[in-house]
Amino acid sequence: MSTITLLPMLKGFVIGAGLIIPIGVQNSYVLSQSIKRNHHLMAATICIVCDFILMSLGVFGGGALINSNSVIAEIITWGGIIFLTVYGFIFFKQFYLANKDDMLKEVKPSTRKAVIFTTLAVTLLNPHAYLDTVVIIGSISGKFADADKMAFLIGTLLASITWFYALSLAAAKMSPWLSQTKVQRGINLLVAMLMWVIAYSLFITL
């Protein structure tokens, strides 16, 4: 692999990691499923596949489409607000129930279908995902020659693969400690508050 090709790939990896690693809805959900060891690798894989599709759209011109169509952007934003608000209440309910031994039994592991649906929802109904992957990645890729765009895209994908599998496997390994009632309550409350804050930040932009 030539230095010319390797450089845009490294830039893609660094930029992709910088956009993916900060705590967000995707990371919070993968973390929560990994602690439960409940289809966590599948959730991570879905996030990676969605990232690849959205990043590819950005690199090959999808960012310009979203920026030029306010209706699409507003529909995505409202969908994100509604989903994040509702799902924030679900995590807050788990935070509340975890303090009651007799009610804790009611919180059952999510089914495979539920994990697939929720992972897709936290990704595709989150406007920040489109901003990071489609708009920002797409804008940066425009600075590269056509021959280097694919290398840049591969770099961003490698960042997504590395992060989501590392997060999933590390959290699952630390599950005995992270699944303690006090720690789990703190994580559930943090995720709920994070989702509500993001939902509010989206609302005030409308």
Rank of each mutant, 00 (worst) to 15 (best):
4 I>V: 14
6 L>K: 12
6 L>A: 13
9 M>V: 11
14 V>T: 09
15 I>Q: 05
16 G>P: 03
17 A>L: 09
17 A>T: 06
18 G>L: 00
23 I>V: 06
25 V>W: 01
27 N>P: 05
29 Y>S: 04
30 V>D: 04
30 V>S: 04
34 S>N: 11
35 I>Y: 10
35 I>C: 15
40 H>D: 08
51 D>A: 04
52 F>T: 03
54 L>T: 00
55 M>A: 04
56 S>N: 09
59 V>M: 08
59 V>Q: 05
63 G>A: 05
67 N>V: 09
67 N>D: 08
68 S>W: 06
71 V>R: 10
71 V>T: 11
71 V>A: 10
73 A>M: 03
75 I>L: 01
76 I>G: 01
77 T>F: 03
78 W>Y: 08
80 G>E: 01
81 I>A: 02
83 F>N: 00
85 T>S: 05
96 Y>V: 13
100 K>L: 13
104 L>A: 14
106 E>K: 15
108 K>P: 15
108 K>T: 12
111 T>R: 10
114 A>H: 14
115 V>C: 06
117 F>R: 15
117 F>K: 14
118 T>F: 01
119 T>L: 02
120 L>H: 00
123 T>K: 00
124 L>C: 02
125 L>H: 01
128 H>S: 06
131 L>N: 00
136 I>S: 01
141 S>M: 08
148 D>M: 13
149 K>H: 09
150 M>Y: 12
152 F>I: 11
162 T>Q: 07
163 W>K: 03
164 F>L: 05
166 A>H: 10
166 A>N: 12
170 A>R: 14
177 W>S: 11
179 S>T: 13
179 S>C: 14
183 V>Y: 14
187 I>C: 13
193 M>V: 12
194 L>R: 05
204 I>D: 11
204 I>L: 10
206 L>Y: 07
